[in-house]
Structures are given as C-alpha cells and as structure tokens.
Design a protein around this nucleic acid. Structure first.
Lengths: 348, 348
DNA sequence: TTGAAAGCGGTACCAG
DNA sequence: CTGGTACCGCTTTCAA
C-alpha cells in the first residue's frame, strides 16, 4: 500500500509583508547613500582600496537591513570563473564506503575553498550529460564510473573546466584518471581461495542493474587469478532477494562448488544465510569470501572473510584537483587508487 | 596503513592545440555571419520568431564547429530566475532508504524540468548555510534535518526562493514542512513490545554524532508509548563497534531487561549478535526490535522484527515543490509523511 | 527575417 | 577615499 501524504491544516496564516523583489547591491548603495562600487569594495574587503570606517558601517548596516545576499551567478559571470567543483550525483545506490569517501572529499575541497556541487543528471548519457555540466562552467569536474567519453572531456575542457578527473576502471583520453582496479578485488579473492586449496570457485554476479560493470570486472579478476591453474570458475547470477538466494542454495550440491566469491559482503550475507539454511557447512564444504569489509561481515557466524578495499583519502584527491586547477596545462595524471587486501576470517 | 596514490607514467603526451578561450554566442554569430540575436533565436527554437532554414543550418553548424555550450549563469542572470532546486548534501551517512528516496526525487523533479543540485555545505551552520544557498538563487530549497531556522527561511525567500521545504521533525515558520514523525517510530516499537508482554524495555541510543537528534526522538516515542503503564524504559548508549556491543551484552543480565528497541536494524544486528554470543536467548529472555526494515534483518536468525518506515514517494514531493513554485503566495503546507508499522518476525 | 541595443547583478579600472 | 562606467554572456524588445 502506498503511503499518502496527509495535509495538516495550518492554524494561522499570517499575511506576509509585500513580496518585495530581491535586493541588489544597487539597493544597498541607495540606502547607504554611496555608489555600487563602494558597496562592492566594502562587502568584499577589497584590500587595494581603503574605505573610511563610517562608510563601511553604513554599507554593512544597509546590507543587513535589506537582507542583501550577493548573486553568485552575476559574480562568476563577471569574474570569468567560479570555484565550483561538479560531480554527477551517483545514480545507483552508493555503499557506505563510497559515501564516506564523498563526504571526506567534500570536506577537503571545502577547506581549499572550493564549492562542491552534486548535479543530478538522470537519464542523460555521456555527451548530453557533459553538455549539461559544461553549462554550469565548473572549474573542475569529478566523474565516477564510465559516464564520460573523450568527447565529453573535450566539451568540458573547451567550456573552461580546468580539470576533469575520472574515477573508473580505465583512463579517458584527456582527463586525469583515478583508476579503481576492480579486477584486483576479484584477483586477490581468487588467489586467496586458490591458496586455501579451493578449485571449483563460484562467483556471484548481481542481477541488479547498475552493478553490472563492477561485477563483470570483479569476475574477470577471479578468472585472471585462476587462469593457468586447475581451478574452474562458475558464474552465479543472483538477485538481491531471499528467494533467489534460496533457489541458488537449493541446487548448490549439484553445482559441486567448494568456494564462492560473493561480489561484496551484502551478497555474501545473503548467500551464506541461504547456504546455512540448506545445511551447507561453511567453510568446510564451501568457502565464502565477500568484499568491502563491512561491519556486518564481522557479525556473521562464521565471520565472513572479505576483501578490504582502500579508497584514496578525500584529502589526496582534493589536492590532486587543486593541483590540476592551478596547472591546467600539465599532462593528465593517472593514479592507481584501489588497495585490495584479503581479510581472512572464518568463512574461508 | 594509509594507501598512497601511485602515479603511473603517461605513455604519450600529445601536444594539445592552442588553449582557445571558451566560445560565446558572439563567436558563433561571427562564424555564422549573423547577429547574436539570431543565434539565440535559433538555438532556443524561439517560436515567436521565424528564422529561415539556411540561416538555422549555418548557426547550428557554427555552434557545433566551435563546441559552443551556453553559459547557464549568464542565462539565468538575464532571465531573472532559474529552475534549480537546491538540497544540502547530507553530511552524515544516509541509509539506503533515504538514498533511494533522494534518487526518486531527483528523477521526478527532473521530469518536471527542474535541475537538482546537492550543495555540500560542511561546517556551516544555519544562517551561514542559508546565505550560501541563497547566493545561488535557487527557485526552491529542500532541507532535510534541522539545519534551518526561521531566519534562514526568511533569507532564502528574500533572495528569491519561491519554495522552501523542510524535511524534519517539526515545522519551521514560513516553510512548507514534511514532518517525519520519528517519535512515531519509537511509539509503535514501544507499543509492540508492551503488547507482547514486555515491561523492562531498553532503548539503544547510538553514540555516533549526527544520529543524536533522530535517536532522541525515537527514544521519546518509546517513552511516550509506555507512559502510564507499569513498563520502565532504560537508555542504552552504544557505539557502532563490536567491542562496545560486547561490553553492553556482558552486563545484560544485571540490567534485567526483557526487551530492547535498537534504533535501527544495523544496531539491532550488532546487539543481537553480541547477546547471542553471551548466551542470551532471543526472544525468550529478551525481545529485540529494530527499524528501517532492511534486508539484513530478514537474514538474521531469529529473523529481526522491525519497524517499517514508509517515506513519501519522490513523485509526490516533486509535485509539492512544483505546486509551491507556481503558487508562491500560498500558505505553507504541512504534511505528515512517515508511515510507521511494525513488521513482526521472530525476534520479538 | 534579421540586427542594434538595453540590461540582468557584480567587479574593477580610472578619474576625480 | 569615492563615483562613474565598461563589461562578463545571454535574452528580448523594438526597428529596420
């Protein structure tokens, strides 16, 4: 049943004062009896120009009285640049790991006096999106995922973006790249399972849309780690639902697997629960390893082995952005930023 | 150990073409051999004016050739308004529930031709933040939490915001309000436990910063539900760490509680695990109920009872915003939007 | 059908 | 020390 918004009657409806139009610096100037230039000098503390104390006070007083707030668009239009760092808002569910990273980044960029803006670009693809972002004339653009091609980068740069940074699996021509080696995540998981003597390895591939590119890479990583050994990899499509997990678990014995990498800890919990309900002993019959090192893995019994993923610190990335903005001519940097390491617990 | 970004040497560094300055509509006009006015007409498909087909083609051609992208700030400066809906980016970890809601909302507003922008305002409080937002001259502002007082609302409205909507526990003078009844969450949990015959009820209060206001309200709700009964409520501060949970579980028997409301399902999992490790039988000795109805609760054994929380649909909220924008004089609406209902499983 | 020009709100140069 | 003014890029009336 859909929950319906219920309006609550308002007790009082005070007649608002006349809806004045929004005050400009000209209004402030008029009220203070000075010129617009003087207002600008005072409110920006322009050091190149000295304004008498009484005048300053009059201007400040007038500004406060009118509730004056400068118009960012007008300012940056005149200045010819802004300090806006634009990021497309993630369309899909971001995990806690990534959310934390985003917060750190915002904070770090804020300390460097940039303004971080997440732009919700739903349904636009690639160049369409790039154009939409370019209209805002950000000084830098941070793009997670593969939502941007070389053409998009070119559009952004031509429209004045001094730095374009992609966070993804492969570099994009013309942009700085933070390479997230998701294959590496699968690779260490695969190597770990092989080292523990497992040879028939299942890999969960989430059916949820938006996770496909990542899960493909992690799967490829497992394949890579096990290539040239006698181990064999089986792909296991799985929706994030109890029933789907139960169905998979029901045919577990016939699959004949002795290990499974579950894409991440959440799918790990889902599958492990289903396997246990089916009587499959973990890790004796089947070893399980997840990824992301979430708290929940530690709370499971047996404790879930996992791949710990280290993202770059927000501060580091903020500094990269700042450097790129200051030195826009420099060659794009490419960094490897995903540190994958196995956390061995009880499930493998 | 902190992971350090490692630079990968660039294989080729193609000399970029001369860093032209960013093309304006004047450049397009020049190249097409027409006036700036004509460019504007063509690119905006202005219906009031008819431009010959050959001219249109020349303009489009020129625009593409230069990679022209219009300047949003200049446009909205001239137009006197924008279609930007601004939301402060959530400072703390947003749960999956809220993330989903945000996505829906962005999508729905996008369909109504608004542009959603999340503004990272870290470390600014109340009026400072309101001023920062007002500088962007958004047509509407959506504020979750209690980050805005009546003064802030006034600032935003004076600077041209036609709608200010708060999502919080109590209405703010002058703004539309979507009331999230977090007390109600605690209330239904408390009532449920009481109905199941429990009388010594613990309530987990997370120690993580940022969760305090919410957890206080949920606690108050439990208190409210149990007021006037013979039940007694005990506050249980708890950090989201295994050790903290273990410490709490270790003195569980001396606390003498027969039920606990864990703030949400994640703390529920944490505490339930610790209690089980301590040998406390659930639900016989202690009933446990969480909130948020996450998947993970269904996967626990015993299955975790929870309070299902229904947020308003993104579409509904988008329509409220649109209505408010179109009818800025109307009295602020106040809606009750949190539907709380107990999902009884095995842990209570 | 197209062009010239005013002006949105601020900033910064130059003159007084 | 302060005022006048040109200009950032774009839209939109008004004339031609």
């Amino acid at each position: 049943m859909r929950y319906v918004m219920v309006q609550i009657p308002k007790s009082t409806t005070p007649a608002l004062p006349a809806p004045r139009s929004v005050p400009t610096s000209a209004d402030v100037a008029r009220l203070a009896g000075v010129s617009r230039a003087t207002v600008s000098y005072v409110l920006n503390n322009t050091s190149a120009v000295r304004i008498s104390e009484p005048t300053r006070r009059r201007v400040h007083q007038a500004a406060k009285e009118l509730g004056y707030v400068p118009h960012a668009a007008a300012r940056s239009l005149r200045a010819g640049h802004s300090r806006m760092v634009l990021m497309p808002a993630p369309a899909v569910q971001a995990g806690p790991l990534y959310s934390q990273f985003l917060n750190d980044l915002q904070w770090a960029l804020g300390r460097l006096d940039y303004t971080v803006v997440q732009y919700g670009s739903v349904g636009l693809c690639d160049d369409e999106a790039a154009r939409a972002w370019a209209e805002l004339r950000p000084v830098a653009v941070l793009v997670p995922g593969v939502e941007l091609g070389p053409a998009g980068v070119a559009v952004l740069k031509r429209s004045g973006a001094r730095a374009v940074v992609t966070l993804g699996s492969e570099p994009v021509e013309g942009a700085h790249a933070l390479l997230m080696d998701h294959e590496g995540v699968g690779r260490v998981a695969g190597a770990h399972l092989h080292a523990r003597g497992r040879r028939r390895v299942g890999v969960v591939v989430p059916e949820e849309p938006g996770l496909e590119s990542l899960s493909r890479l992690r799967l490829a990583g497992v394949r890579d780690a096990l290539a040239g050994t006698d181990a064999v990899v089986t792909e296991l499509p799985l929706a994030y639902e109890e029933e789907a997990a139960a169905r998979l678990a029901a045919r577990w014995r016939e699959l004949g697997l002795d290990a499974v990498f579950t894409y991440n800890d959440e799918y790990g919990m889902l599958l492990m629960r289903a396997l246990q309900d089916e009587g499959v002993r973990i890790p004796q019959e089947t070893a399980v390893i997840g990824a992301d090192d979430l708290m929940l893995g530690r709370l499971l019994r047996p404790r879930l082995s996992t791949v710990h993923i280290e993202l770059p610190s927000g501060r580091d990335l903020a500094e990269l952005v700042d450097r790129a903005v200051r030195e826009p001519g420099a060659a794009p940097e490419t960094h490897q930023v995903l540190g994958s390491s196995v956390v061995h617990r009880e499930s493998s």
